[in-house]
Design a protein around this nucleic acid. Structure first.
Lengths: 331, 331
DNA sequence: TTGAAAGCGCTAACAT
DNA sequence: ATGTTAGCGCTTTCAA
């Protein structure tokens, strides 16, 4: 890899001049520029982003971090795509870190991100008091949170109306005649789980029914826990006639259990999930689900971050997007 | 962020000494070490990976790149997890680049990776002559290819036995009595598609049947193309009685079309897909599929890369893992 | 319009 | 055992 120096020597100018033509410096003679451009082409010169980043804290390093709890969840894949598209358009590269719901891993990745001098971070914190993310925030790093906020912290956030999304789904279940509706929650400590539970409870109570805490199961937002908690539910003496599942992976797990028991959906047990998937229509039966605009969450978050990087004092924005209940055959 | 200098001043030693204690330098007095460690803790010092990388080309920058064609494909998500786990254990950070089957994007990402002075790259090239990846290879960057190789290039590769995987699936279809078996291929130019087609053809011929080229459709390895090509197939005057789909996303797309036409699987049309998914069992009907050890592909690739980084002259290895036909209800 | 030179934070000789 | 110093490749004054 050739350096600025090599180019300068070949073009017979100083490195300062080369730097100017590269960075669209205004004051440079046309002839000189041509010479430099030629040398650059001949040497296939590629600027070192590393040196650039080291040198100018002020100038943008064009690098942002993306911190995600679980890349196996298609929801985050879509968020990632949204982030990526905007980053690409704005010439940012992204370092993606999947901490797999492991706070130790999260800390390590966040350290690395800081050590890499990223310009900003898009993060779905482990929970609403996540000390690792809060630390970076306090250090002054531009951050925008997705899917979940940080309680008591003034930070840009892009979320979905979780409470309403859950409410609409459960309300629909009730209006359709289901009486014992269970909720399989993701990790209890993450805000989205709480809001979804809130919507679930409100819908039940607003319909003059009673919440039965036996029907609420808490898991870890993963496939395995969908399988197991659904099994617990179906093994009850008085099992639910409908299940509202807290996310993608839980839904898939629950479906697996229901099929294993050879129960008919929705006749014997109905199911509505939070999170829609591209292939929900090909599930057995086609799944009814609360769709989150995941791609858009990522897109908006990245736009917000880029704004914040260029204007660190702009006051934080909380953006709430809406969900939509997609009815198919599972309820 | 405090620097080596800050720590040195606070501890009352030189930066060299600080550097020594950080890098487990052998020659350092216990008392001094303690002082330095104390200063580090007090200042919450974090070394700059950027400066480190700039300084020592020789020393490891602990950064590897991962180039992936389509993160929406769960197969690559699993590969990613395998890579990540090994990288994590070995203290490497990874920059993940999803080029979304867009060669322009691929080039941009590869440029960035080079500009970031990565130690090595794990790549699933766009096709077997991918000039962007070949360029880096020629520049001497340690590379290991996954899922597809680079024809004529001596490079580490981790692949699956695509031809045999396809053969076993199609052979099973034939032995089960299906007569007109279609193949919906992913992008024609990628090696895995070719090998799968080869297995498909061989199985048909070895069973004394004739390959009907009308039944082979080429797409772009995405969901959409599964939907459309399956539609073309089913709209034929003499439609297939079974379909072998070239990957994950195509399978899901084909399933969507079959359901839209309300055809019964496998009675009216059977289907076997390449790539199994965690939730294949919850599809309608539970999907039969050729399982690839995706996580292991990623794991092995990363191990190979780390070896190669430390020993760049070791001669290239081609690793071929086996697939397994998982029979459920779709054929 | 161009060049010289300082310095970003670090490692690795080389000196002491 | 510890310190001094020369860069890595770049941006950015300041001078010419």
């Amino acid at each position: 890899m050739s350096s600025l120096n090599d180019v300068a020597r070949r073009a017979g100018v100083s490195i300062a001049t080369v730097s100017r033509v590269i960075n669209k410096g205004s004051n440079v003679n046309e002839e000189t520029r041509a010479k430099v451009l030629k040398a650059i082409k001949e040497l296939k010169y590629q600027p070192s982003r590393v040196a650039k980043r080291l040198r100018s804290k002020s100038a943008s390093s064009n690098l942002i971090g993306l911190l995600i709890p679980d890349i196996q969840n298609p929801f985050y894949v879509d968020v990632l795509r949204g982030v990526e598209d905007v980053a690409y358009e704005n010439n940012y590269a992204i370092i993606m870190c999947n901490f797999a719901q492991d706070e130790k891993k999260e800390k390590m990745y966040l350290d690395i991100l800081q050590q890499e001098s990223i310009d900003g971070l898009i993060a779905a914190p482990a929970h609403e008091k996540d000390p690792n993310v809060i630390k970076l925030l306090n250090d002054g790093l531009p951050i925008v949170c997705v899917d979940r906020g940080l309680t008591g912290k003034d930070v840009d956030v892009v979320v979905v109306n979780n409470r309403d999304g859950a409410y609409v789904a459960v309300d629909h279940l009730i209006k359709s005649g289901y009486k014992r509706i269970a909720y399989i929650s993701g990790q209890k400590q993450i805000p989205s789980s709480k809001y979804r539970e809130m919507g679930y409870r409100d819908a039940i109570e607003d319909n003059g029914m009673q919440v039965d805490v036996e029907l609420i199961k808490y898991g870890d937002s993963k496939h395995r826990s969908g399988v197991e908690l659904c099994e617990e539910l179906l093994a009850m003496a008085n099992p639910p006639d409908a299940i509202f599942t807290g996310n993608n992976l839980i839904t898939l797990g629950a479906l697996e259990t229901i099929h294993k028991r050879e129960l008919r959906i929705p006749e014997e047990v109905a199911i509505v999930g939070f999170d829609d998937m591209m292939w929900s229509i090909s599930l057995n039966p086609p799944l009814s689900a609360v769709r989150q605009p995941a791609y858009e969450i990522g897109k908006r978050a990245c736009e917000l971050l880029i704004q914040r990087i260029s204007d660190p004092k702009r006051s934080p924005i909380q953006m709430t997007l809406n969900t939509k209940l997609i009815l198919r055959k599972s309820c």
